[in-house]
Amino acid sequence: MLDDLRIERYARHILLREVGGVGQDRILSSKVEIRGLGEAGCWATTYLALAGVGRLRLCDPRPIPAGGLGPLLLAAAEGEPRDRAAAKAIGGLNLDVVVEVGGGAASAPGAWTADGRGESVRIRVAPSAPTSDPSATGAYFVATRDGRAVGGWEGGRVCEACLEAALGSAPSGPSAAALAGSTAASEVLAAILQEAPRPRGLRIHRLGEPLPVGPCPHGDAA
């Protein structure tokens, strides 16, 4: 799969001890579904496309807001469905990536609060082989609101109370969503490369350093 063109394209990844040619092959063979294309979702999608994830499924038909979103959805595309516009944009980033739009799980992507101030992203890596291990299909979850972001690997339903508490104590800043999106992409790529279950639980992102949130005290899975 790594022909001369791809060796040239991914040379900087191949140089990394954690990736190499074998790892880049694995990334090119991987399939990832992204539900929710808010700012964090756009950053995560951009990094995963540039990394060479072979198949991306994007799910978020909401219209692009005025001013665009993140690095992927430009202001000129205002009003277009986010997933379709993102698919077009990815074609200009990396020709190796096959993008599918829509479908996937039944739950609505994107907004997670009724007032529309909150955004969520769920990124799921398809297992490389059929498996009955539920951890193999775990999703990385990011929630952002009012300039704050939290994220982590889901072990089940995310506890709303824990989410509120984590968001309330997360540092705020204009780059929180971008940082959460890039962290999500890093976590997903690590999962692809290691093919291992990831640690579960929401984490607050502070300048790239994940801070674990304690066990859920509300009797709910987090």
């Binding site: 060796i7 040379a11 191949i14 140089l15 040619g21 074998v22």
Partner: peptide, 13 residues
């Protein structure tokens, strides 16, 4: 450089 080491690394893999 860096394709020199990239090619050697792929050979070693």
């Amino acid at each position: 450089c860096p394709m020199t080491w990239v090619r050697v690394k792929l050979g070693l893999e």
